[in-house]
Structure formats: C-alpha cells, structure tokens
C-alpha cells in the first residue's frame, strides 16, 4: 500500500471553481425570485379580471342603478340589479355569526389563557384546531340538515309559551304582531349560527395570542392593588390586549362575509331585501355559486354580473382587512 505524498496533489481537485457555483446561485436566485413574484401576479390577476368584467358590466348597467335598485333579478327576463339585496343578506348573516362568535370565542380565549391549566390548554387547543379544520361543506350539511330541523323542533316546542308572550306583547299599545314567524327550511338564522361556530376558533386563537402575550407583571400589579381575578381580566388584561382582540373580530367578520358553502346550502337562493332571519335569502357568495353552476356564457350579462358581485365582495373584505391592520398598528400597546 502506498501512502500518497502530500507533495503530489492533483491541483484541479482543490480548485474551488467559484465561477460555476456563483452562476448556479444566480440562476437559482432568479428562479426563486420569480416564484416569489407569483404572489404579485396573483394579486394583479385578481384585480385585473375583476376590474375588466366589472367595467364592461358598468357600461351596460349604470353604477347608480346597481346601488339603488330594490330587486335582484339578473337572470330573469326583466332584469334588475340591486346589489343591496345581496349585501343586506350577507350583512345580516355576518352579524348573526359574530353575535355567536364574539362571546363564545372571546370567553374561550380567556378561559384558555387565564383559567385553564397548562395540561388543559394542551388538550383544548387541538380541539379548537380541529374545529377550525372542518371543511365548510361539512358545516353546510350540519346547518341545513341538523341545526335547522332542531331549531324548528325547538320553536314548535316553545310555541305555547311564545304565544302567551305574544298575547302579552299585543296587549301593550303600539305593538301588533299577528303571528309567530315560521322558520323556513332555508333561513339565515341557522346559517348565521353555524357560520358563527365556524369562525369561533379563529376569534379564539387570535384573541388568545393577544391575551396570552400581555405581560405577567401587569396582572401582578393589579393583584397587588387588591383586585380579584375577574377584575384583573376585565379591567387590565382585556384593555391591554384590545388591539389584538378587535383585529381578530374584524378578520372573523371578513371571513364570514366571504364564506360560501354554509350560506349556499343553508340560507337558500332567494334574493329578498330585508332583515328577517327566518326566511330564505341569497348572499353575494351564494349568487356566484348559483351562476357558475349553471353554464354562464362568456360575455353574457350574467357572466359580467358574476364579476361585479365578486368585485363588491372583494372590496368589502379588503376594506375590513385593511381596517384590521390599521387598527392593530394604531392601538397596539407595546411592552418592553
């Protein structure tokens, strides 16, 4: 066996060949940069497609008509384009959902952050994650086939009681309600309730992050002043975490506004103006699904209406998201 002498190296083995590595690095960097640019292209694509068809739409239907018509019948012979009909349904369902998600999510966040032991936290957080990971079509099934029948049964069960209540109300002056409202098979009440359940994990986990990050010394200071646990939470911890909590609520509303499957399945497809949660309505997202399910011919007014509604939806959620970012930036309490 010969030991190779260090004095006879093949020099090319050690030559670093930096140029080639540098070239490869430049190429890779450009490819990765192009991949990163996909996000910019996506945004541009969304804005361009929405704007293009919406402008064609607005050339045929004036903006004023779009905003002030009181009926929504773009697929019928006598067409009317009152976007407000769809917006009112979306707003009503979103309000119902946030009325569910705000107390439920916020209290759950307080419980996880302040009351639960570390072991409890370890069990409960994954449960919330599962709740957040359930596909929306499953919630749609739940709303239409479980919650609505349950609510109808509950209303029927409570009817005698409600009738008494109604009689008392009608005995008072100025109030005249003829009969109890009947809960239809499609209604915005159960859609809103289930939508609220869907966005609860979002509120809970984002608020929990905000509450959990409030420094312990603020709580200790409050305890030293003789406050109880609840007083510490409501008057020290929650105000300190306010920006995070509000932004989580706004993001949840934005999610509710853009949600599609629950409202399409459970709230129906009946564009009516008004805020009655017992009857079928049609949200913006439900309209988009209705049109795309039937074969909307490219260039037809139905196809353009699709994008006009999409633009409205996009603008509403964008405004909510920007407001949420602004709120965090403006009102964030900084510690350390």
């Amino acid at each position: 066996m010969t030991v190779q002498s260090p004095s006879t190296p093949s020099q090319s083995l050690w030559r670093p060949n930096r140029d080639r590595s540098r070239l490869i690095q430049t190429i890779v960097k450009c490819i990765c940069g192009a991949f990163a640019a996909v996000s910019i292209i996506t945004t541009l694509g969304i804005v361009a497609t929405l704007l293009f068809e919406t402008i064609t739409f607005l050339q045929e239907i004036p903006l004023w008509q779009f905003l002030t018509d009181r009926k929504w019948t773009p697929l019928f012979a006598s067409k009317e384009f009152g976007i407000f009909v769809l917006v009112s349904a979306t707003v009503m369902i979103s309000i119902i959902s946030i009325l569910v998600a705000m107390p439920l999510g916020l209290l759950a966040a307080i419980c996880l952050s302040e009351y639960a032991s570390p072991r409890m936290r370890k069990i409960l957080k994954p449960v919330l994650e599962v709740l957040a990971g359930v596909p929306t079509v499953v919630y749609g099934y739940f709303a239409l086939l479980t919650v609505t029948p349950s609510l109808q049964a509950l209303l029927e069960f409570l009817t005698p009681l409600l009738n008494v209540f109604l009689a008392v109300l009608n005995a008072l002056p100025f109030i005249a309600i003829e009969s109890l409202p009947e809960l239809k098979g499609f209604n915005s009440l159960s859609a809103g309730l289930v939508l609220g359940v869907m966005i609860t994990p979002l509120v809970a986990s984002l608020s929990e992050d905000a509450i959990y990050s409030v420094p312990q010394r603020l709580r200790d200071g409050a305890y030293a002043l003789g406050t109880t646990k609840r007083e510490t939470i409501t008057s020290v911890v929650l105000p300190a975490a306010l920006s995070g909590i509000v932004s989580s609520l706004i993001l949840a509303i934005s999610r509710a506004v853009g949600e599609t499957m629950i409202v399409t399945l459970a709230a129906g497809a009946n564009p009516t103006l008004g805020l009655n949660p017992f009857v079928p309505v049609m949200t913006m997202t439900a309209f988009i699904v209705q049109v795309t399910k039937g074969d909307a011919v490219h260039g037809s007014i139905a196809y353009q209406t699709l994008f006009a509604v999409g633009t409205t939806l996009f603008l509403i959620t964008l405004a909510l998201n920007i407001f949420s970012f602004w709120f965090v930036r403006r009102f964030r309490e900084k510690y350390d």
């Binding site: 990163a36 996000s39 969304i46 497609t49 929405l50 853009g258 997202t285 988009i288 795309t292 699709l306």
Partner: peptide
C-alpha cells in the same frame, strides 16, 4: 420587491376563496 411580495402575501391570505375561483374561471 421583497416588501411588495410580503404585503401581497399577507393581503392574499385575506381574500375569500370564492374570489380565487373567479380568477381561475377567467384565467
């Protein structure tokens, strides 16, 4: 460029999924 990409990513996360569907339909 980096800042633009980062702003875009955080904005895109808030766009409703059905809007992506409309983009897919058109594009």
């Amino acid at each position: 460029f980096t800042r633009l990409v980062e702003i875009n990513i955080s904005n895109l996360a808030g766009v409703p999924s059905i809007i992506y569907g409309l983009l897919g339909l058109a594009a």
